[in-house]
Amino acid sequence: MTRRTMRMAGVVLAGMVIFLPLSSLVIWSFAEKWYWPHLFPQQTGLFYWAKVMQGDLLRALTDGFLIAIVVTVLTLVITIPLAYVLARLPVPFKPLILMIFLLPQAFPQLPVFVNSTTLLYQVNLGGKLGGVVLIHMVGALVFAVWTMTAVFKSVPEALEEAAINLGASRFKAFYSVSLPLATPGIIASTLLVFLYSLDEFTGTLLVGSPFVLTLPVYMYRTSVGYELQVASISALMLMVPGIVLLVLLERYMKSEYLSMFGRI
């Protein structure tokens, strides 16, 4: 075999491994009648797509987006100053602070979130949007603090010192030198926080049930309830934001950021 055909064979094989599981979702989302053991549905159409547009799916979609936007904005606002301080200043207890932000990555989340749910119910946030936002922020903060600290560390300190030597205050140096230079990294980190919140399942199921519905939880319910068409449509919708992000950011994304994504 020539090198060229080897390469093509590799692409075809990889394409099959990746797209075979996903293709079933596409077929199922258009299937109106599909009897075993036919390879393809007997009748296809947009019936279920039209149906889900009126049901709970739309509510799950809008609630999920609302939660993700709130989580992203809040996380960003409280993380940027902290990340800057951690990257630049000799903060007291820095190792301890960083360790606390590492814990949720190192240990299983579900058994911890079971107790977090109890705590949220104690302050009357269980089963409410606010509670879901807070539980999403736990994971989002871990992710944001680590990536943004790295981003600020990569901005050369000398530039800031030059600004300060020329008479800028520390805040002015941060605002007009470091922040603009860190912007690309911050944008990447922000998009990933948004995606994390949109895809979060465990915390939403525990804290939000049965009142708060996001797309992953809705998909879980419909899938185990054997509403396979509805579940497949939800699954496809869940995949769209991630794929768009991957295509847009593939070239710019550092592998450390991407690797955080293996967890969702």
């Binding site: 590799g10 692409v11 990889a14 394409g15 491994v17 990746i18 599981p21 996903l22 079933s24 979702l25 199922w28 995606l195 895809d199 399942f201 992953p216 998909m219 879980y220 899938s223 396979l228 579940a231 497949s232 699954a235 869940l238 995949m239 991630g242 794929i243 992000l245 991957l246 593939e250 991407l258 994504f261 293996g262 969702i264």
Partner: peptide, 22 residues
């Protein structure tokens, strides 16, 4: 091939579970 193998990173576990179930 490298690009194809990045796709699953952005597909949440729940969706993987459902896709494999189907």
């Amino acid at each position: 091939v490298e690009f194809l193998f990045k796709i699953p990173l952005f597909i949440p576990f729940v969706v993987v579970g459902h896709a494999m179930r189907v």
